[in-house]
Design a protein around this nucleic acid. Structure first.
Length: 129
RNA sequence: GGAGCCGGCCAGGCAGUCGCUCGCCGCAUGGCGGCGGGAGGAAAGUCCGGGCUCCGGCGGACAGGGUGCCAGGUAACGCCUGGGGGGCGCGAGCCCACGGAAAGUGCCACAGAAAACAGACCGCCGGCGCCGCUGUGCGGCGCAGGCAAGGGUGAAAAGGUGCGGUAAGAGCGCACCGCGCGGGUGGUAACACGCCGCGGCACGGUAAACCCCACCCGGAGCAAGACCAAAUAGGGGAGCAGGCGACGGGCGCGAGCCCGGCGCACCGGUGUCCGCCCGGGCUCCCGGGUAGGUCGCAAGAGGCCGCCGGCGACGGUGGUCCCAGAUGAAUGGCUGCCCCCGACAGAACCCGGCUUAUCGGCCGGCUCCAUUU
RNA sequence: UGGGGUGUAGCCAAGUGGUAAGGCAGCGGGUUUUGAUCCCGCCAUUCGCAGGUUCGAAUCCUGCCACCCCAG
């Protein structure tokens, strides 16, 4: 629970069930590099799941690099995030992007995730689809 | 100094800081702390070869597939080493699917006269007949022949060069070269020989066409497979078999029926079949559980150093080291400094090769050219 | 990660050693008052790419590339 920079297995989506839960009722945040799906969880902390498909990013080196960038960015942004499960998917442009561009993109995504979640909670279950 | 050939190695470095994962230790038990390890030469393509696991075990025949100069190396190979033959290069060196076409079959389009037991379009040659011209001669046309040197076609036209020979020619004869067969010598062998004898020469190409010869190969694959838990044995339904033979026993007047063990048949890994051993009623459908966990899963045909054997690939031996092990998937982010500003690229059961991608750098050996002393 | 398959014109495709069929689409022309139908003609395809075997390769062999399918 120490809110240092740690990022352990408890902070990741580990099973098929976790992923299906996010895919079932997703909120979205998308740009040219990444698509994020997220939804509220009951754990009181954010969790990250990666879904970098081989179709979108053919080379293993690029897939690994993207995953590292996303994890690292998430690790730093984690204290400012609400209790949501987030699935990050990559678009075809992501493989060609530099580290700086990726970080900037991800930072915007984390802000949007926080903002959307907060507004939904303030709105007090204003049931929408 | 320049150009080049071969072999081996490296794959930005250092410091700080924040993280991930595995192992060990400690606290006292699932949280933290300390120490240590943490992608590649190709991890890739999945093109070969093995290990391992399951298909019950072993052997054989055919089918199917693979390999293809010889000899070694190896767990094995389509790999490697050495050698032979052929080709390229002044050279160091490099390249080659390199068995058999006199075992048989098929194919060789178009062109060309003829394309495989050769053939005769143009042509060359003399003979005969007719005709013409300036006379025993020359020319033309025709007929029956001879020839395979020249032309032309073709990817390929049935030894080459020279001399003799002839009507013209021809291995027709001879010399040299080439070729074939038999032998000899050297070599484990492939093969070699400026060793001998025989044959005038007969055998076109294609086997990455069928094929023949020699050797090798069972099938799947870690999503293999094993274990744990209510938990892999069973429940319900349907179908097909419960056969044949001799023998022994029982019942019956008898045809026959019942029982027993034995043999055959049937089923059990691969395309087919056979033999022996082992096991066994068989097949199908229905419902309830599987993206739970553990093992397999990393100490190995292992790396490094030395010695011995070998031209070498490699083998033997002694010492030493432990060197990724994830599983929604770790091996990274940031900052600073330095340099020649960093290529191709990311393990998923493991290993030996091949192939493909790749910025650049280092070391060793060698060749050719130029130059200096 | 492992196993399997396919590449021939814009599309669907045949061909399996000797000039690469055919259809749809497209373009041009003819027929027709116009259109449809019909008729004629046209596709510079290095046959996915690169080597090799052969006199000759889409076809045979080797190595690459791209795409698709199956298995938890």
């Amino acid at each position: 629970m120490s809110s240092s920079g740690a990022f352990s297995r408890a902070d990741r989506l580990l099973s098929r069930r976790d992923f299906q839960a996010v895919f079932a009722r997703p909120r979205r945040s998308r740009d040219a590099f990444f698509t994020l799906l997220f939804c509220h969880n009951e754990l009181g902390r954010p969790r990250l799941g990666l879904a970098i498909s081989r179709r979108r990013v053919p080379r293993a080196v690029d897939r690994n690099r993207l995953k590292r960038q996303v994890r690292e960015s998430f690790r730093h942004a984690r204290p400012g995030l609400p209790a949501v499960d987030i699935v990050v998917m990559a678009g075809p442009e992501a493989a060609a992007a530099g580290a700086g561009a990726l970080r900037a993109s991800l930072a915007r995504h984390w802000q949007r995730v926080a903002a959307k979640t907060q507004s939904a909670e303030e709105g007090g279950d204003r049931a929408d689809g």
